[in-house]
């Protein structure tokens, strides 16, 4: 339904979107996940024909975003991040205006208006001036606007930003109810949101896709990695040497040498299996005092942080 091929967007000297390619199947809900400034909004703006891409091509619902921009826009519902609304209109007036601009005829507009107003929980606010509505209701009006013409593709830029937890749950449930009939892309920097609503996650950082998988697979990837926190008293080099032969350990890092009270050192080990016994034996066998041994499972959050913070370092190395 959405095919993005080698998309590039350059602002001055900064690459906001850096050779991004991905596909979204019909009926799928895909989450764009990334820190602020990662290129999520820019990518969405290109797909909605608001911004031109510097390079690359994209198709939405089978139409090219440059050559058949109007056909794309006809099939697209979009909720921008800042939720643009006409504050001087009532909810009904606003939705009617947007529906007309999206090409709905009078009778269809009336039925759709009643549907989205009901679905977005706006029945009691239809005659209210939008400028007098709370942030949560404005968000719902924005969502209703994106869906008024029953579009094939829906693009939502941070649809749950600045809502309270109860409102977030409502919006999330509504987004889930769109599944199947609509192809959906939503962006967020809130992890649980992706896990709860999306079929697939595209992690974006510095304009590049750093992961493209189901939340389940990413979670498996996460849970297959354990983090062991070890505190020992004695020479750190001796500890590192003792741990060397234990193969499941993929990474060893010294967090601090010379802890305040015990005077020991804290190490963090990443392992792909439970090696607590081996680690304990090896350290004690090397004549070190084992003060602490603590195992944690990596969360999706850790993976996210890892993917989005290590990338600049790796990129810098590439350049060097």
């Amino acid at each position: 339904m959405i095919v993005v091929d080698d998309l590039v967007k350059v602002y001055g000297r900064r690459r906001a979107v850096d050779h991004v390619s991905f596909e979204v199947e019909k009926g799928e809900i895909v989450g764009f996940l990334g820190p602020n400034g990662a290129g999520k909004t820019t990518t969405m703006r290109i797909l909605t024909c608001f911004l031109p891409a510097t390079g690359g091509r994209a198709q939405v619902a089978g139409f090219d975003i440059v050559d058949d921009s109007r056909e794309v826009r006809r099939r697209l519902g979009y909720l921008p991040e800042n939720v643009p609304l006409y504050l001087d209109l009532t909810v009904d007036q606003y939705l009617t205006y947007m529906g007309k601009l999206k090409g709905l005829d009078r009778s269809r507009l009336q039925t759709r208006l009643n549907e989205v107003v009901a679905n977005c929980g706006l029945e009691h606010r239809r005659r209210d001036i939008i400028g007098k509505l709370s942030r949560g209701y404005r968000q719902r009006v924005g969502l209703a606007q994106a869906l008024i013409h029953d579009p094939e593709v829906v693009i939502l830029d941070e649809p749950t930003a600045s809502l309270d937890p109860a409102q977030i749950r409502e919006v999330r449930d509504y987004i889930k109810s769109l599944k199947g009939n609509h192809t959906l892309i939503l962006s967020t920097h809130i992890l649980p949101e992706v896990e709860l609503t999306c079929d697939r996650v595209l992690m974006i950082n510095n304009g590049r896709i750093v992961a493209n998988d189901t939340p389940g697979n990413l979670r498996n990837l996460a849970s297959s990695t354990q983090v062991l926190t070890v505190e020992v008293r004695g020479a750190v080099s001796a500890a590192q040497a003792a741990l060397q032969p234990i193969t499941p350990i993929t990474r060893t890092s010294v967090v601090s040498d010379g802890l305040p009270v015990s005077g020991g050192a804290r190490l963090e080990l990443e392992t792909s299996a439970d090696v607590r016994g081996d680690v304990a034996r090896a350290l004690v066998g090397a004549g070190l005092d084992l003060l602490r041994l603590d195992q944690q499972t990596k969360s999706l959050e850790d993976i996210f942080v890892e993917l989005t913070t290590e990338e600049p370092a790796a990129a810098a190395q590439e350049v060097a």
């Binding site: 826009r73 006409y86 947007m98 601009l101």
Partner: peptide
């Protein structure tokens, strides 16, 4: 409102 041009330009 702010940025309503985005709505207009993404409408058909």
């Amino acid at each position: 409102g702010i940025g309503t041009i985005e709505l207009l330009l993404t409408s058909p």
